[in-house]
Design a protein around this nucleic acid. Sequence first.
DNA 1: TAAATATGCAACCATATGGTTGCATATTTA
DNA 2: TAAATATGCAACCATATGGTTGCATATTTA
Lengths: 109, 109
Amino acid sequence: MLNEGAGRDPAPLFAALGDRTRLSLLTKLSDGPSRSIAGLSAGTDLTRQAVTKHLRILEAAGLVISSRVGRESQFALRPEPLEELRVYLESISHHWDDALARLRVYLDR
Amino acid sequence: MLNEGAGRDPAPLFAALGDRTRLSLLTKLSDGPSRSIAGLSAGTDLTRQAVTKHLRILEAAGLVISSRVGRESQFALRPEPLEELRVYLESISHHWDDALARLRVYLDR
DNA sequence: TAAATATGCAACCATATGGTTGCATATTTA
DNA sequence: TAAATATGCAACCATATGGTTGCATATTTA
């Protein structure tokens, strides 16, 4: 059986990524330095408050970090969890490939 | 700006993975051949109906495929979407790394 | 200092989500 | 054929989720 891994439960992380708006925010933040809430809200059809909620969810998942700079809140990407998930997905795929290989050996003999 | 990619919107896929029960089902299915609903429900503290709902969600996301065999429904993993997501996560991380590199060049000059 | 800008917080809302129970139906198996 | 097994479908429920509006507060800027 596939080891669930030493890391934390990946489900909440996937859930944090399971929203178009949040993926879009991460994409914007992957583009360069940190941005303010107003900056991230511009161009969206959502209210600033809605965007703020999404940012807090991303922050709770560890996908972004925020810091107050003057009157604005700056958000920046934290890529570590993305890497964690990448490894996790890879482990499932590999485990599946191994299982298929074993099955093939079994069928061919 | 990071290209959203030629593939479909990854948000629904992430959402499908954003649940402990569903991740656990995928893990079980990555272990080997297909299993019936009853087989997948055994050992869970959920009802068979709840597990069925999760399986249908995974199926709608393309993460598993089902086929009726006699009186039972067999479910098997479909690893392709996992690979898609892996690539997607990788692209965000890479994009971020590139942005950081550019920033560094800018600061150092 | 007064006006403008950038947030934070709370209360509310409609709908989605994760589960359950109850009952019908299709296949096997004794 | 009768009992057991494996599902499917529907109706219901409590709570989570994604958004909004309204108003207060902290910083800048003119």
